[in-house]
Amino acid sequence: MTSAEGKRGLRIVVCIKQVPKAQELSVDPVTKTLKRVGVPSEINPPDQNALELALRLREKHGGEIVVLSMGPTSFDESLERAIAMGADRAVLVTDRNLGGSDTVPTALTLEHAIEKIGGVDLILCGEETTDASTGHVGPGIAGHMDIPQITYCSEVEILDGKVRGTRMIEDGAETWEAPLPCLVTVDFGCNKPRQPTLTGKIRVKRGGLVVHWSAADIGLEPSQIGLRGSPTIVAKVDTVQLPARGGRIFQEEPVIAVSLLLDALRKDKVIP
C-alpha cells in the first residue's frame, strides 16, 4: 500500500480502545474478574498520547486524522471524544461475532479496516492498553499489513516520505527511520493530550462523523474472528493474596524497645 498520488498532507489512522478508568476499577472477589459495570470509561491513556501526537503532526503537515476502534457501540463515547479533541472522523468496527477476540483477530480486524479506509500514510497506536497490557495489537497490525513499525516512540517526525521515530531505551534513546506507510506505537505520557473543544463537541453533535462497520463490511469471515479466531485459552484467573504481615510493634521506652528488637532479630536468625 502506498500513499495516494497527489494527496495533500498525511492521512493518519489512530487506533484507540475504550477502557474502564483504571483508578476506579476493582476485582470481584468471587468471580475474580474485573468489575466493569458502572465504572466510567476513558480513552486508553497511551492512545490519548498517540492522538495528541497525530494532532501535532496534522498541525505541521496538514491532512486528515481518522480514529479507529473495534468494540461495542458504547465505544462511540470515546470516538466522539477523540473528534471533540480534534480528529476529523472515526470508524468503529462493531459486530457480535467479534466478541471474545484476543489480540490476533483484533489486529486482523483493524488491519482490514485500515485497508478499507485506504490511502493511509501513518498508523499510530498507544504502546499498550491499561486493561489488558499486551502491547500486541499495534505490531500485529503492522505484521498483517507487512509494513515497517517503530515501537515505543516518544517523538515522531515526518520527513519527505519517511517517518523518524525516537524511542527511549534503558540507557539512552534510539532513532529509527522507516518509509511510509508505517506503524508507530507511542510511549505513554510522552505528551499532554489536549482537552475537547467547544467547536469539536459541536461537530460531534452535528453528527455523521462516526461510522460503524460490521465484520462483513471489511471482508472478514466469522471463523477468522471472535473466540474461534483467537488462539488464546484462558485457563485460570487468580488474584494475588498479599501475605499478612507478621510484624510486631515495640512500644516500650526507645532503649528497651531497641534491645528487644535486637533480641527478636537474633532469635529469628536475621542477624548474628
Partner: peptide
Amino acid sequence: AMLVMGIRV
C-alpha cells in the same frame, strides 16, 4: 437546542 456539556466558557 444543541446541548454541549463539559465545556467552560
